[in-house]
Design a protein around this nucleic acid. Structure first.
Length: 260
DNA sequence: AGTACCACCTGACGGC
DNA sequence: TGCCGTCAGGTGGTAC
């Protein structure tokens, strides 16, 4: 699930539930998503508190009142849940942060494709992991520059976290659909107007999604997002939605709207 | 540099 | 009901 807007909502969720509370216990349920041992998490986080959150692309960083930051990545199915009732641990919880005064934050990851890590610095972490500029932080010039000279398909470029961090399969499809650009178009065949349109559309879509709690059901009906099904009606013309495979991913387009 | 595959994992869904 | 293939909003590695 989680692309940039989802992770931004998780950030807001932590900000509103879990900051400035002393951590009492770090409960690792499944260490296969952890890049550090349960003991290390315990040593680094116990008696500390979460103080500040930052997001870059799909990565979420949480500072503690020590030199360490917690890094959360959600893979395809990760999420968070804060709750108070002791006997109500969500399914697929891989880690629980228990606060001294009773609240608990669960890191949930059914498919175990996410990662939890510790780092000294979000910036260094992003550099080491080749995570590019955040899609919402990039300005129009950055965007044009980053796509300049790319010879691959535009969908691949938009999903490449080294280039621009934050867009995944669904939102890259959405941006291309709203710009009437075919996902297999070679990036270097796009003209200035199309690049500019991609940038503006990406900004608008990401902000709209965040303003709607990243909930697809709350998104405008003329968006592709609720019509991602072979044969569905195109929200914008008489065409019907077609499923392709692009860069190994299921990709949805309107073949009438997206000619080039 | 780009692409095509495989791998990591589990759950849901449709066909038989 | 059960089995099986396929697919799923992510990422990293490898081989061409």
């Amino acid at each position: 699930m989680p692309e940039l807007p989802d992770v931004e909502i998780y950030k807001q969720y932590i900000d509103s539930t879990s900051l400035h509370k002393t951590l009492d216990q770090i409960d690792v349920k499944d260490d296969s998503v952890m890049n550090e041992s349960a003991q290390t998490f315990e040593e680094q986080l116990k008696s500390r508190s979460f103080e500040e959150t930052r997001r870059r692309g799909k990565r979420l960083f949480i500072s503690t009142n020590s030199e360490k930051w917690l890094m959360l990545h959600f893979g395809m199915t990760g999420s968070l849940q804060y709750w108070e009732d002791e006997n109500n641990i969500p399914d697929h919880t891989r880690m629980i942060f228990r606060f001294e005064k009773g609240g608990k934050l669960a890191y949930i990851c059914p498919r175990k494709l996410g990662t939890v890590d510790l780092t000294d610095s979000p910036d260094n972490f992003c550099e080491e992991h080749h995570i590019g500029i955040d899609a919402l932080e990039a300005d129009a010039d950055d965007f044009r520059e980053l796509l300049n000279n790319k010879r691959g398909m535009i969908k691949t470029a938009l999903m490449d976290q080294k280039t621009i961090a934050g867009l995944g399969n669904v939102y890259s499809d959405e941006v291309l659909y709203q710009c009437n650009i075919h996902p297999k178009t070679k990036t270097n065949k796009l003209d200035d107007e199309q690049i500019s349109s991609l940038y503006q559309t990406m900004q608008r879509i990401l902000k709209t999604s965040i303003n709607n709690q990243a909930d697809p059901q709350k998104m405008p009906d003329h968006y592709l997002i609720n019509h991602r099904q072979e044969g569905a009606d195109c929200p914008d013309c008489a065409g019907s939605i077609k499923r392709l495979k692009v860069a190994g991913r299921g990709c949805y387009i309107c073949p009438v709207c997206q000619k080039s």
